[in-house]
């Protein structure tokens, strides 16, 4: 039985040639599916478009160059301002040693310093017993001074760490944070 009634008629009349406005973004989605590479290209070109403001305005070049320079200086300042120096004198008894080598070790884990220690720099100890390490980042360090082999000092003193009070005692950690520490080392007598 294929009887027609008024519901059918009403619906047929209402929806034959029914053309509601399609959703706005539908084409973009279809296009993205059909041309995925094109979509990537258009993303890139919109980026290019943003930056092309500069290429269209040559008078912006000096401004851009200045901004880049300022940025570079800020970066240099930042990197330097966050680096430190460690300096001091090495003593053998009451007198400063003349010549030797200072060793700086970084400690990566304070809880087990001897397992995580790495030698990062050496510095000469001058005739006045002075040594200096520069470009040191925040962290924990051990510092040791070896007197110059073959000198009188080596007969009476041994290589020593900072604040080491006996040959068998542990080295003391030097913490570097916001200041440049001055660290004097007193060599242990033999």
């Amino acid at each position: 039985m294929e009887e027609k009634d008024n519901i059918e008629d009403i619906y047929r009349k209402a929806f034959t040639g029914f053309e509601p406005p399609p959703p706005g973004q539908a084409w973009e989605k279809v296009k993205a599916e059909l041309h995925p590479a094109e979509l990537d290209k258009s993303k890139f070109s919109s980026l290019k478009e943003r930056f092309s403001v500069f290429s269209r305005s040559p008078n912006l070049y000096p401004l851009l160059a200045t901004a880049a320079m300022v940025l570079l200086l800020i970066m240099i300042w930042f990197s330097y301002s966050h680096k430190h120096n460690i300096s001091g004198h090495a003593y053998a008894g009451e007198t400063r040693i003349s010549r030797g080598t200072a060793f700086l070790f970084q400690v990566y884990d304070k809880a087990k310093p001897y397992d995580t220690v790495i030698l990062i720099q050496t510095a000469p100890v001058d005739n006045n017993g002075y040594y200096r390490f520069s470009g040191i980042i925040h962290g924990n360090y051990f510092l040791r001074v070896n007197p110059l082999p073959g000198t009188d000092i080596t007969k009476n003193f041994m290589p020593s760490f900072y604040n080491q009070d006996s040959a068998s005692s542990e080295a003391v950690i030097i913490k570097v944070d916001n200041d440049d520490p001055t660290v004097d080392i007193h060599l242990l007598p033999k």
Binding site: G17, E19, P20, P23, A26, W27, K29, V30
Partner: peptide
């Protein structure tokens, strides 16, 4: 798109599904 969205709306349970069908149909 307009006439086919009409078809989609009739067959779909709601507008969101109609939009899905529209896109899938054109692809």
């Amino acid at each position: 798109s307009a006439s086919m969205f009409g078809v989609c709306l009739r067959y779909a349970g709601n507008r969101m599904e109609a939009q899905d069908i529209l896109q899938e149909g054109f692809i």
